[in-house]
Design a binder for these strands. Structure first.
Lengths: 305, 305
DNA sequence: CTAGTAATGCTCGGATCGAGCACAAGTAGC
DNA sequence: GCTACTTGTGCTCGATCCGAGCATTACTAG
């Protein structure tokens, strides 16, 4: 007789952008182990829907009220939960987007690119990091044509970089033994070099899934405005998109998209920034969603190498 | 003390294309109620991963061995399961793609467009169906600007049709009381007119989610080949894509995409079809996946009205 | 041999996109 | 008040992609 009863938790990747950096909320653990995502149980009796459950305990646990919530993925490998014994754990992952905000005691923002340094390709950062990573990867793949192909495609070595493939890249590093979690899970020796800051359990994997999904969603839904304040300049908007995509965009082309998409409207006010011509202030036209399909920021066409 | 123990099932939307029609596998129920999706429990003790669990009982229950499996969404509304009493049910939905195949006793293929007639816009079928649906929808939305906007966008009335938005359309019909499940769930009177064939529980919703996701995935991953036989003509390939998208494609442009994408290779053989010039036979070049990002069939650009 | 049908090759104009130039409108330093 | 610098904003141009159609090829049916 199989056991069907399972403990279900709801794990949230709460994303914001502040100071042009994408951050996620984590909860510190007292025992010095890596932090984890905020997570709460599903109250099978009380919670009407999964999404309401997330909102409920999220405001309780972190003091943050989220407006945008979206289901991400359900993680159910047996390896999850207390390795070995313990009951079966199932985690339904959610993405939440919030404007910059201060969380309550116990939780804190962590830069997404501390977890995934290789995902940030703005301002030439790619060179520094891919010059460390690439050699290790090619070494790992050497002689195995399949591996070599995967490394090239997923990491954009000799091929265009696809910002969406965050999870694929993380999983490849996991396989190659280049992230800490691999040895933690398999019980082997810690790698001499590991990349990015780990999270507890499989939570870095969950964040990777979330970041990839979010990057994709940016291109066809106006989700970026969920992390923006009410009014903003076009440059601020662009910086936020760039932060999440991890790549720079051509300023004039970005504005062309905003214009054509009628995504925003001018408030008429201006802001004198740190220097230079004052920028017009804009606000999101939430009506777009009901006017046009696909209102988002299409990714730049990948360069043919 | 909240109850956290939950019964978890794995529900699969198994999709194939035969005779240019997209089909899904359903299981008939003896009591005359609408059929449901094949569904199995998660064996918390035995199943290493959720995906392996799906594969395990799928071959047991339907006799079908699937090669392609992908997680879809997790459905957990309290309304699910035995309405009222009974324990909390959580369903992790999966999409599986298979080539044409005969299932074992008890399960059978059903045309996807029997469930969603409005999703099939090939061969001018749109007129017949949208002339029935559209009046009811506009009536439902009359006077409510928000509803009117949603109807226009989701159903492409006076706006481009977006093949992806299958779930949005189904949910709108649900809200408008134009599908049977609405009255079943809420206990109200059955609608005078309802559209499409219902499934049990919330399974039609699950299929809607699957179809939307699949249509999207077609555009950037070569998943279509999962439902194709080993060799096929380019027209057969095109017909299968069209079947899932529910729309016709320009033949020459379709071939241009196949060519440029190097998705297939000629076998050198030809097939004399029912009449006309014999078509070359092709097979999938599975190497594409490791050669280029985004190897798929991009959707035609939506017409600006 | 002719008509019909499907497969295949090719072309052309419009839309979109990447990339840059040029100018506008401020601030900071002298 | 002038100059240098910084940032915002408008515009253009060539490359590419895409929609749509014409023309030709290679077969079947009568």
């Amino acid at each position: 007789m199989p056991t069907n009863q399972v403990y279900v938790s709801l794990d949230a990747v709460i994303v914001t952008v502040s100071a042009n950096e994408p951050n996620i909320l984590v909860v510190d653990r007292s025992d010095g182990q890596p932090p984890i995502l905020p997570s709460g149980p599903l109250d099978a009796d009380e919670d009407e829907t999964l999404e309401l459950a997330v909102r409920r305990w999220l405001s309780l646990q972190t003091g943050i009220t989220v407006s945008y919530v979206e289901q991400l993925y359900t993680f159910g490998d047996r390896r999850r939960g207390a390795a070995g014994g313990g009951e079966r754990q199932l985690a339904v992952g959610y993405i939440a987007l919030v404007p910059e905000e201060t969380p309550s005691e116990g939780s804190l923002w962590v830069g997404t690119y501390e977890l995934f340094p290789w995902e940030d390709r703005r301002f030439g950062r790619r060179d520094v990091l891919l010059n460390d990573l690439a050699p290790r990867l090619t070494e790992w793949a050497r002689g195995d044509a399949l591996r070599e192909g995967r490394v090239q495609i997923t990491f954009g070595l000799g091929a265009p970089w696809d910002p969406i493939r965050v999870l694929e890249r993380y999983e490849l590093l996991y396989e190659a033994g280049l992230v800490e979690e691999q040895s933690t899970d398999e019980g082997g020796p810690a790698p001499q070099t590991s990349f990015g800051r780990p999270l507890g359990v499989d939570h870095r994997r969950i964040v990777a899934t979330a970041l990839g999904r979010l990057r994709g969603k940016l291109t066809y839904r106006p989700v970026i405005f969920e992390v923006m304040p009410d009014t903003f300049t076009l440059t601020e908007l662009q910086r936020s998109v760039e932060a999440l995509l991890g790549m720079e965009l051509h300023k004039q082309n970005f504005r062309r998209i905003v214009d054509r998409g009628e995504l925003v409207e001018a408030t008429g006010e201006h802001r004198s920034s740190t220097g230079g011509r004052p920028a017009g202030l804009y606000r999101f036209r939430s009506e777009v969603a009901s006017e046009r399909p696909q209102p988002g920021f299409p990714l730049p066409r990948p360069k043919a190498l």
